[in-house]
Design a protein around this nucleic acid. Structure first.
Length: 346
DNA sequence: AACCAAGACAACCGCGAGTCG
DNA sequence: GCGACTCGCGGTTGTCTTGGT
């Protein structure tokens, strides 16, 4: 009997497996190794294919957005580590990769910060009430919030389209369609801005490992904007929000007086608009500029943060965008996952 | 340069669910 | 209904790389 090979795959083995699948498809994994001339078990071949060789796999470092998605979904899904469900929200990432990323990085990072990576509670200050919440309650709340948010987003996007000036140049081609995520997994939609409480249990933002401040579209889009928010050290400081590529962008939940400038990257032209959103924090506010699609732009917003929660939400006509103060990344993230679930149905 | 520890990533193992005869 | 089989998932282990001493 021939002993099956184990351990790391060689380049030759990869090529054999790839060549066979490209020509015949994988069909039955059990019979595949013999047909492909591999001394591996079918299971090993399947794993190698699904986790490494598949052409629709993205490799390399996970983005901040992907990292946040993992943490949020992990917190929502509780202790039943649904890696495949989480990976379903990360295009081109495998469950194995997500799982490894969690185990080797995120879990350790949270632990170092004194946070239980399972309950998301500080280890020396457990929140008894939150701990008693059932997963069913969390799911129901997530669903309710998702519905409410979807309604808000669709209204806002419609408004932006309607308000585009008639003199604006024709819109660029629509972005490619992406398959919708499974409805039951739309817990990402529960994302919302949350204020950082004064009794925040961990250290100052500066002491935390700060992520990159460049955030991309939450949904993949070849025409997506890239919004860059530099790290700031205090809530009273003016933020600068920049945008390259072209598009209209709206500010959400900014109160007081806000100036938003749109400037071409080559400084050839600048326009600005002013928002007076008053104290109505529940309204989304928008800016709408004339622009040309063959230019790259910087979009800067000077926002009075003195009495505003520290997060923004940005929208473009191309899809929903999230951008926020990078320095409060962990504060905001952990408050999100730790915030008591309040649902009228509970 | 050599050694060691920690980190990062890849792969394996065991189990359970689904399918089919 | 039952057993064989396949597949997917989560947990764990193995291996390679990197950085510090």
């Amino acid at each position: 009997m021939v002993e099956l090979k184990k351990g790391p795959w060689t380049r030759e083995e990869d090529q054999k497996l790839l060549a066979y699948i490209e020509e015949h498809g994988h069909g039955s994994w059990r019979s595949l190794p013999a047909k492909a001339g591999l001394l591996r078990c079918g299971k090993s071949c399947r794993l190698r294919w699904t986790n490494y060789l598949r052409p629709d796999i993205k490799r390399g470092k996970l983005s901040t957005q992907e990292e946040k998605t993992i943490i949020r979904l992990h917190a929502l899904l509780g202790n039943s580590f649904r890696w495949s469900a989480i990976a379903a929200h990360l295009p081109k990432r495998t469950d194995n990769e997500v799982k490894n990323y969690w185990n080797t990085r995120l879990k350790k990072r949270l632990t170092r910060m004194g946070i239980d990576p399972v309950t998301y509670k500080p280890k020396n200050n457990p929140d008894r009430h939150a701990a008693n919440l059932s997963h069913m309650a969390q799911w129901e709340t997530a669903r309710l919030e998702a519905e409410a948010r979807l309604v808000r987003e669709s209204k806002l996007l419609s408004k932006l389209h309607l308000l585009r000036k008639v003199t604006a140049p024709p819109p660029p081609p629509p972005p490619p369609q992406h398959p919708a995520a499974p409805p039951c997994l739309d817990v990402l939609k529960v994302w919302r801005a949350t204020a950082v409480p004064e009794n925040c249990f961990f250290g100052s933002p500066g002491s935390l490992e700060s992520p990159t401040s460049t955030l991309n579209f939450s949904t993949p889009s070849t025409s997506g904007l890239t919004l860059t928010v530099p790290t700031v050290s205090s809530a009273a400081q003016n933020d600068v929000i920049s945008m390259n590529n072209s598009g209209a962008c709206g500010l959400g939940k900014a109160n007081s007086y806000t100036e938003v400038k749109l400037r071409t990257m080559d400084n050839s032209s600048t326009t600005s608009q002013y928002l007076d959103s008053g104290n109505n924090l529940d309204d989304y506010h928008y800016v709408d500029f004339d622009y040309e699609y063959d230019h790259d732009y910087d979009m800067t917003g000077s926002v009075d943060l003195a009495s505003v929660n520290h997060n923004y939400e940005g929208y473009s006509t191309g899809g929903a965008v999230e951008f926020e103060d990078a320095a409060d990344y962990w504060s905001e993230l952990l408050n999100l996952v730790r915030s008591p679930i309040e649902s009228p149905g509970l």
